[in-house]
Design a protein around this nucleic acid. Structure first.
Lengths: 221, 221
DNA sequence: ATATTTATGTTAACATTGTCAACATATAAA
DNA sequence: TTTATATGTTGACAATGTTAACATAAATAT
């Protein structure tokens, strides 16, 4: 493929790369077609040869973003080598870390504006590839093995997810000084939520020392 | 005050009223100066006689919005007639209700874009008037009276707030079908969070029947 | 009362935005 | 070699927030 002055050669991917690099630092709202044009050395309207609109580019970003997110968050959940409780802990921490490391992308994925894309990507249908589905499956695994209380797994998944989402959102949206406390907050939240779904009569394994107390059959402290 | 053709008379307030009415149905992003102009029968730039910019109008909305929010959410928290646990329950439910009833306003108040306004309004300084401060005070009240475990009240406040914020956000931002389940979810979340902060050896009062189980000194179930 | 100042609204212009039609050129296919 | 397709440019469009220059009503001073 000869490098020509006129044809760029790989514009579509470069648009996406530039856009992802951009939201690493700035909100997606600030991204303009002019910025994309300038950084690629093309004109403002060249994007329309590759995306039907600016929104279509963003929609593609969201789809790719969810793949990144799901990989990063759900991989630990699926690792059957580790104790289930540890997988929850690690995966939840990865969730927060992802939001902290990519706040603008996280907001894009879980904000209101493009909720319709999320619905497609996170739908229950693809339980094994979405992070949400992976959590639900892990919860069901815990119920079957007796580690977790029998309950509506969908409801429990949402409850845990919502708490993670809340903590992540407060951190990245600059709510008071949550960020300074987030590690302790995460541990506290994890313990509390775990205590809410865990079965009490079963001996449960974890390699995480700080969890020992709640993992022993409960006594009034 | 004579009604003139040229001078409107009460434009500033009317701009705010129209803007609040607008975000009852649509996102703040969709509000334009043209809309404000048309609805008041003035020109697009008349707003600049009352606000230094469009953002300044929105900032005023946020300040007023927080007053609404704090009133709606924190009033129950301060009502010392009721048992403390019930106040938590009612106030948390009001939090969710506010978000559900005014999703665009809620997003405006707790989103990233105008976080700097929130910092002023919610600062620790005015503990008695902000909803956040009221929750913190109520938690401290619970600790002093022995109902709640001794712990860092600021940290606990954030933990509870973040869970509420997470549930509210998932509901209003269209995350799967959370809205359909939210009442059950709220009750479950409340019980779980309460179990995490409650003192176990004290007899605690509530007029809420469904809380009885966790309010009795815990036994393995 | 009259004159002056201040408050409030209008008009016209600006740069910036996303978008599109008409055109241009490079690559691929016939 | 011709034709078709893919990809990029140019120039225009309406809509946006904003500002300067102007207009008029209301408040204040004389």
């Amino acid at each position: 493929m000869i490098k020509s002055e006129y044809h760029h050669g790989n514009l579509k991917e470069e648009f996406l790369n530039i856009a992802f690099a951009f939201i690493q630092d700035e909100d997606i709202e600030k991204l303009t077609l002019k910025i994309l044009a300038d950084k690629t050395g093309t004109s403002r309207s060249s994007i329309y040869r590759h995306f039907s609109s600016k929104d279509a580019l963003i929609e593609t970003m969201i789809e790719k973003g969810f793949e990144q997110f799901d990989d990063f968050v759900a991989t630990a959940l699926r690792d059957r080598q580790k104790p289930l409780i540890d997988r929850f802990y690690i995966s939840g921490k990865a969730y927060i870390a992802f939001a902290k490391d990519h706040p603008n992308l996280y907001r894009l994925l879980f904000g209101k504006k493009y909720a319709y894309i999320r619905e497609e990507k996170m739908s229950i249908k693809d339980e094994d590839c979405s992070g949400f589905g992976a959590l639900k499956i892990a919860i069901e695994e815990g119920q079957k093995s007796g580690i977790l209380k029998e309950d509506d797994s969908y409801k429990q998944t949402i409850m845990i997810w919502s708490s993670l989402h809340g903590l992540a959102s407060l951190i990245i949206d600059g709510f008071m000084d949550v960020e300074a406390l987030y590690e302790t907050l995460y541990d506290d939240l994890f313990k509390t939520l775990l205590a809410g779904i865990i079965a009490t009569k079963v001996k449960i394994l974890s390699s995480l020392p700080f969890l020992e107390k709640i993992l022993q059959p409960q006594e009034t402290q």
